[in-house]
Design a protein around this nucleic acid. Structure first.
Length: 268
DNA sequence: ATGGTTGCAACGCAA
């Protein structure tokens, strides 16, 4: 049984609902996790998702900032909206659903961006980001014979050298500093998570999911970063059937600065 | 070396 999970930082779900519709109609993932929905739960465009066949919706939103949502064609059970760093930011929602005889736990994360100054002593947003990633150590890739875990989202860190357009030039830029990338990879491994976007892909192959709005021509300069991720528990790796970074979506009208990533699995 | 853009919401802040 084939199924697919997509993740996309949409940068305002209400503003970009036409792009979401286009994406769902063309690619029809079974499950879609969104980040930066930027709206409170009572104004989330649930009716539009239902009309597109995504009748099962788990949201954790707030007015104006952050916010995550997972929508699905199949029934999903909301598991948790976890708080991190003892504040009320809406940055996580987890759901459980059945797929091909297995019960899957799907975490959807929006990790703090961290501001511009990569010094936790003078930049509280960077401190918050480091603390948030440290707290993610509690999120483990739980699995047994009948269950598995997937973690997706905008994690706002590009961990490997070729996850950015220039390793050297970004070493002191928030998202690729050694303190971030080291803590990030340690957290991932401690949790038992597999980085599926690098599974079977050479480490020296460039992978980007985000291109800044500030470039004059994002396509020509191609100064991207891999900020969006798909992880899973080890027992799902044999069922992984490949993935796609939807680069073209960066060129759609009024785009998000992130593009969707679609991961495919085959169970049974 | 610097500044470049976008969204929210209604000013500057977050990204």
């Amino acid at each position: 049984m084939a199924f697919s999970i997509a993740t996309w930082n949409i940068n305002s779900v209400r503003l970009r609902m036409p792009l979401v519709e286009r994406f769902l109609l063309e690619y029809a993932p079974d499950v879609l996790s969104l980040q930066e929905t930027k709206c409170a739960n009572d104004v989330f465009p649930a009716a539009a998702f239902r009309k597109l066949g995504y009748e099962h919706i788990a949201i954790n939103g707030q007015k104006g900032y952050h916010g995550v949502a997972t929508v699905a064609r199949r029934p999903i059970e909301i598991v948790e909206r976890r708080r991190f760093c003892e504040n009320d930011d809406c940055r996580h929602v987890s759901v459980r659903f059945d797929a091909g005889g297995k019960s899957l736990l799907l975490h959807n994360f929006y990790v703090p961006a961290g501001g511009d100054e990569p010094d936790p002593e003078i930049n509280r947003k960077f401190r918050h980001k480091l603390d948030f990633v440290a707290e993610m150590n509690a999120i483990r890739a739980e699995h047994d014979e009948v269950s598995g875990s997937v973690l997706v989202g905008d994690l706002n860190i590009a961990p490997l050298e070729h996850d950015v357009w220039s390793h050297k030039q970004l070493l002191n830029v928030v998202s690729h500093t050694p303190v971030e990338t080291t803590g990030f990879e340690a957290m991932r491994k401690a949790g038992g998570w597999i980085d599926l976007m690098r599974h079977g892909v050479p480490d020296d192959q460039k992978l980007y999911t985000w291109w800044s709005y500030r470039a004059q021509d994002w396509q020509a300069s191609n100064r991207g970063r891999r900020l969006d991720h798909v992880w899973c528990s080890a027992n799902l790796v044999p069922h992984f059937a490949g993935y796609e970074i939807l680069r073209e979506a960066r060129g759609w009208e009024r785009p998000s600065d992130h593009v969707p990533v679609i991961a495919r699995f085959d169970l049974n």
